[in-house]
């Protein structure tokens, strides 16, 4: 059984983002890159699933420049068996092209389940997994907070979080895709033996250009700019009644929301 994990290398959450002078992108020089945090839940769930299925193989797939190899090695150090690095030295693809390339690479690999993060924290699109599901014509459960392998290992029971505390429960037979949410598990640290072992695990290198099939992106980026700085807040004072009155006044006259 083959278990795949989709991961993306993204800027660390604590990075201060700087825009290039020509606004064509962000300055990468000082950025520390990490594995997208939601993808860590996907890695962990894949390893846990493999541990329950004798003979199963896990592999991790990432599209990105050379540096994305670090993210793949991190997944291997955590315990994933193999890596596929789809090298892209051009600007990042849009979600559709990313799905298209992944579809080309993954469709013939006899995969039973694909784990991914529910979204990447850089562009926050949150649509890749669904697009890939559509191309593969497989079911897909997003924002998954629980994954239980069925006893006969033919599929799994999943819990999907909805708004307002409601949950949806799915029972699905393989193959399918899972978009992983925080709370699904606690990702393990790459252990030191794991880091040493990762050196010898195989990483297959492919080129994005071989999978585009003449398609071009639907989305192109015109320019990047930082969000405007947040204005200082206003503190209302006085008795509750007075505060309520001034709040209504501000909402009406200043922000004009009522």
């Amino acid at each position: 059984m083959n278990i795949a994990v989709l991961i993306k290398q993204v800027p660390d959450t604590e990075t201060k983002i700087k825009i290039k002078p020509d606004q064509s992108g962000i300055e990468e020089g000082d950025i520390k890159f990490i594995v997208n945090p939601y993808d860590e839940f996907a890695i962990e769930e894949a390893i846990k699933t493999k541990e329950k299925i004798p003979g199963a193989t896990t592999f991790v797939v990432s599209i990105g420049p050379e540096r994305a190899g670090e993210a793949i090695r991190t997944a291997l150090a955590m315990g994933i068996d193999k890596g596929i690095h789809i090298v892209n030295n051009e600007p990042a693809l849009d979600s559709y092209l990313t799905a298209k390339v992944l579809h080309g690479v993954l469709k013939e690999r006899n995969i039973s389940v694909i784990f991914s993060g529910k979204q990447a924290i850089d562009f926050d699109h949150g649509q890749l997994t669904q697009m890939l599901a559509d191309m593969l014509d497989w079911p897909c459960v997003m924002i998954t907070e629980s994954f239980q392998l069925k006893e006969d290992k033919s599929g799994a029971k999943l819990v999907r979080r909805l708004g307002g505390g409601a949950k949806e429960i799915y029972e699905i037979a393989f193959p399918f895709l899972v978009g992983c949410e925080k709370g699904l598990n606690t990702p393990r640290y790459a252990s030191l033996p794991g880091i040493m072992k990762a050196k010898t695990k195989p990483v297959e290198k492919l080129l994005v250009s071989n999978y585009l099939e003449g398609q071009s992106a639907f989305v192109s980026y015109k320019n990047y700019e930082l969000p405007p700085e947040r204005m200082a807040g206003k503190k209302l004072e006085g008795e509750p009644q007075i505060q309520a009155q001034s709040l209504v006044k501000l909402l009406r006259e200043e922000s004009k929301v009522i």
Binding site: I34, E70, R73, T74, A77, Y189, A190, L192, I195, M196, A198, K199
Partner: peptide, 8 residues
Amino acid sequence: EQDMLRKT
């Protein structure tokens, strides 16, 4: 490996 060790 040393880079990853530091991060971990």
